[in-house]
């Protein structure tokens, strides 16, 4: 349908856009505005928040203590994104070049974990990684069999849970589909004759990959990076359940302000700092896209 048609049929446009816009305003923008207002407020009594226009919450939020936690969260989310990109790119490539029948199954395999509740997946990871979990039980069994033949010291379980690597592992596990799907979408649209031409003209596989495939797939890579990085930055359950004593991320601190500390204004200020950070990421992506477009 062309743009002309839409312009003529205003009513249709309104009827289609109206309900989602109404929904978005009522259930997203309005609550968000309330939280935004809270971030300029202060607690009076135990249940009342007075919107006094104060910047005290933001002043508290940019103390080194909290900036350090922001920084740590960014590092964790960035590491997660890089690992997802490195691991997800070959997967997306493999799906792209798979025969059509297999393709559907491979895509299903990527999507399948999505249909299981995050909490259940995280507890499943705990059962796999813990000291007496499946990995350690298997390793311990193998160790025992080796011990029947050779003289080995007793098995010491690997510590795979309650530390920062466990959190990173959990984040990658949860966010990998966010990376694979946009990458696949970008790679699938790729004109394959360009790859053939590159190979015919003497470029090796690696050079073809870096100089032809990657630049053409860049929009997909950028959106994959963005939609992996943003939820990873706000990750809350994973550091809570898989992390050790120093694995808190910014979302855990925000959660505690709303619950334990009962300091909603401060929690709101932290939330909005996180949101502003997200806006910056989106802006950076848009900027890169535009610069590419201009070239």
């Amino acid at each position: 349908m062309s743009g002309e048609n839409w312009r003529q049929e205003r009513k249709t446009l309104l009827a289609t856009l109206g309900p989602p816009l109404f929904w978005l305003t009522l259930f997203f923008l309005v609550p968000l505005a309330v939280v935004w207002a809270y971030s300029f407020g202060r607690n009076v009594g135990l249940t009342e928040i007075e919107i006094s226009g104060t910047f005290a919450n933001y002043a508290q939020a940019i103390q080194p203590l909290y900036l350090g936690i922001f920084f740590k969260s960014i590092v964790m989310a960035a590491a997660c994104t890089v690992i997802c990109l490195v691991a997800g790119f070959p997967v997306a490539l493999a799906i792209t070049f798979a025969p059509d029948k297999v393709k559907a199954w491979l895509l299903l395999a990527v999507m399948l974990p999505f249909w299981t509740n995050l909490l259940i997946r995280t507890y499943a990871l705990i059962a796999v990684l813990r000291d007496e979990g499946y990995i350690n039980l298997t390793l311990g069994w193998i160790w025992k069999q080796v011990g029947l033949v050779l003289n080995v010291p007793p098995f010491v379980p690997l510590e795979m849970l309650h530390n920062n690597p466990a959190v990173l592992f959990g984040l990658v596990y949860v966010h990998l589909p966010f990376m694979v799907l946009p990458l696949y979408a970008a790679l699938d649209r790729l004109d394959r004759s360009l790859i053939e031409a590159s190979l015919d003209l003497g470029a090796g596989h690696f050079r073809t990959m870096m100089q032809v495939v990657v630049p053409l797939a860049l929009p997909g890579i950028l959106s994959g990076v963005l939609i992996t990085f943003i939820p990873a930055l706000g990750a809350y359950l994973t550091p809570d359940l898989l992390g050790g004593p120093d694995s808190q991320m910014i979302a855990n601190v925000i959660e505690r302000q709303f619950k334990r500390a009962n300091d909603w204004p401060f929690g709101a200020a932290l939330s909005f700092l996180l949101l502003y950070l997200t806006f910056v990421m989106v802006a950076v992506q848009a900027l890169i896209q535009r610069r590419r477009g201009a070239r």
């Binding site: 978005l24 997203f28 609550p31 968000l32 309330v34 939280v35 999505f114 995050l118 949860v174 966010f178 939609i227 943003i230 939820p231 706000g234 990750a235 809350y236 359950l237 994973t238 979302a251 925000i254 959660e255 939330s271 996180l274 949101l275």
Partner: peptide, 14 residues
């Protein structure tokens, strides 16, 4: 009115 996004499968905060 949670701003956490991890619980949701959708990448959008909305």
């Amino acid at each position: 009115m949670s701003l956490r996004s991890e619980h949701s499968r959708r990448s959008i905060l909305a």
